[in-house]
């Protein structure tokens, strides 16, 4: 099949994926209260409204705090775990890796209910830090995958070379392994951040009634009717995700991070 047909197929699918977002972007520009496409007069009033109304600013702040802290926690759990499992094949390494991967292999509603019952039992239900810890543990998978990939890609001879040149274990870690892992840690953090920002069910079940996050707020708002401001939030979310992944793609090797081993350069 010719390269053009292949590209055409890819573009058609991408267009289908983009269609709802195009509509939503149009809707967000409506001058009036209603959701019309093409928009009923173009205005940015709903964008301004989002950043003025307390009703939306509070969930936005909550979401950002949760995402920032939870992804940091996820990285802090994932990094030592990846380092441990990298050099070992024992049962503990397998068990810990399995636990780190499990949240993504199970429907999230299960983890959400588990966290909900846990926080109800030990206290903490409805608190923002409970959401942070839950998200942190739930999202461990992402930095675990990226950091493990980074370690796998590292030539063992680099470490041996550092050792022959006089570096002890601690120095090898500080001057070689950690600097080489930085891009993988950063992308793991970014992945976790974006997913935490978008996560609904855990945030809802752990503290949905007291600590509203943006997705929870959107869902609550949907019950009272659709307004263009929902389009604004959606556009910002999609834009933010595209920005983050675009940056990773720009400064890192995204195909490699996704597991490709040979990628043709231009």
């Amino acid at each position: 099949m010719s390269q053009h047909l292949k590209l055409a197929y890819i573009c058609v699918i991408l267009a289908l994926l983009a269609a709802p977002l195009v509509i939503v972007t149009g809707v967000s520009l409506n001058a009036g209260q209603s959701l019309r496409f093409p928009p009923d007069g173009v205005s940015l009033r709903w964008y301004l409204a989002l950043f003025r109304e307390q009703e939306w600013l509070v969930p936005m702040r909550n979401s950002l705090i949760i995402a920032a802290c939870a992804s940091a926690l996820a990285v802090l759990i994932a990094a030592p775990l990846a380092l441990y499992a990298w050099e070992r094949t024992g049962w503990l390494a397998k068990l810990l890796t399995g636990m780190g991967m499990a949240p993504f292999a199970l429907p999230p509603v299960i983890s959400a209910l588990g966290f909900m019952i846990f926080w109800m039992t030990v206290g903490g239900y409805g608190q923002i830090w409970a959401t942070i810890v839950s998200h942190g543990v739930f999202l461990v998978t992402l930095p675990l995958v990226t950091i493990s990939l980074g370690l796998k890609a590292m030539d063992r001879a680099l470490i041996e070379a550092a050792r022959t040149m006089g570096a002890d274990r601690r120095t090898v870690m500080r001057t070689l392994i950690l600097p080489l892992l930085v891009p993988y840690v950063v992308s793991g953090y970014a992945f976790a951040f974006v997913l935490s920002l978008n996560e609904y069910i855990i945030a809802y079940m752990v503290a949905g009634f007291t600590v509203e996050t943006l997705p929870v707020k959107i869902f609550n708002a949907l019950r009272y009717g659709y307004t263009p401001i929902l389009g604004v939030v959606s556009v910002l979310f999609a834009g933010f995700a595209a920005l983050v992944f675009g940056l990773i793609g720009r400064f890192g090797n995204l195909p490699r991070l996704m597991g490709a081993e040979r990628v043709r350069d231009e």
């Binding site: 994926l17 939503v24 978008n198 609904y200 943006l214 959107i218 929902l230 959606s234 999609a238 995700a241």
Partner: peptide, 18 residues
């Protein structure tokens, strides 16, 4: 991949709304 990851990370609530 950037497009796919952005769509993948979209909250279900945003996909539903869109």
């Amino acid at each position: 991949l950037v497009v796919l990851l952005s769509v993948l990370s979209l909250s279900e609530v945003i996909i539903g709304f869109s």
